[in-house]
């Protein structure tokens, strides 16, 4: 098989797994609904829990936004491989002559899509509850890069913890420390959109660097993680 055919097969397998996951999720509705409802509940609780006078909003809102996104994402990320493991179908997937990076990439894209849909629904609700206008073009790359960072780490560790009994407990314990830089950068970059502060470091640059480094590491290690 030449390089071009191998590449074509690789992308066909990525698309097949991604398509299967989307179709499966649309029919079972196990993940999207839970993630979406969770994000909305976090917004409502934060809305009541914090003093949201005008001078406080810029300080509280970015944190509330990313706490909701990160926690809701983890609900979905935990299901990425656990659902396959529970049904035993991951073994059947691993039985196929599929590049393990194709499986990881498809799961990552699926997670990214699921989280993005939840964010798309949650953002207008957040803007309404916190009386904040978030619909500037600059928010899009922050949300995209921040979500990608969380999904890269979460997808890899979801594969790792899927075989463990205490995966619901273990996944956040492993993921949270690693995504601290993403959360800090995303919160600060979002805050900078609401309240311009002088001498802010390039948070978007940090997000890009994090995503590139950890995506490379994940692609290098996913074969071992999935097979062992």
């Amino acid at each position: 098989m030449n390089t071009l055919s191998a590449l074509r097969l690789f992308y066909d397998q990525v698309l097949a797994i991604l398509g299967k996951d989307i179709r499966y999720e649309l029919r079972s509705k196990q993940t999207w609904l839970g993630m979406g409802l969770f994000a909305l509940l976090v917004f409502v609780i934060f809305n009541f829990a914090f003093d949201l006078r005008v001078e406080n909003r810029a300080a509280v809102a970015p944190g509330a936004l990313w706490v909701a996104f990160v926690f809701a994402s983890l609900l979905g990320l935990g299901r990425t491989f656990a659902a396959e493991r529970e049904g035993g179908s991951l073994d059947r997937l691993l039985l196929c002559p599929v590049d393990r990076r194709a499986i990881y990439l498809a799961k990552l894209l699926g997670n990214l899509l699921f989280i993005a849909v939840v964010e798309l629904v949650a953002l207008p609700v957040f803007a309404a509850l916190f009386s904040i206008s978030l619909f500037s073009g600059e928010l899009l790359p922050i949300v995209l890069l921040g979500t990608l960072g969380v999904a890269i780490i979460g997808t890899l560790f979801s594969a790792m913890t899927a075989v463990t009994r205490a995966r619901e407990l273990l996944l956040p314990l492993l993921v949270f420390p690693l995504i601290v830089p993403v959360v800090i950068a995303a919160v600060r970059a979002t805050g900078a959109l609401m309240l311009v502060a002088p001498n802010e470091p390039p948070w978007l640059g940090l997000l890009v660097a994090f995503d590139v480094i950890f995506l490379s590491l994940a692609l290098l290690t996913c074969s071992y993680v999935l097979e062992e």
């Binding site: 097969l9 066909d12 397998q13 097949a16 299967k20 179709r23 499966y24 029919r27 079972s28 049904g87 035993g88 179908s89 073994d91 059947r92 997937l93 196929c96 002559p97 599929v98």
Partner: peptide, 21 residues
């Protein structure tokens, strides 16, 4: 059997056909 329960019989086979090329 370890098949995808939410997919149809044909969809399951088509998915694995793509996996095996």
């Amino acid at each position: 059997p370890y098949l995808y329960e939410e997919l149809t019989a044909l969809e399951n086979l088509l998915f694995f056909a793509r996996m095996y090329g």
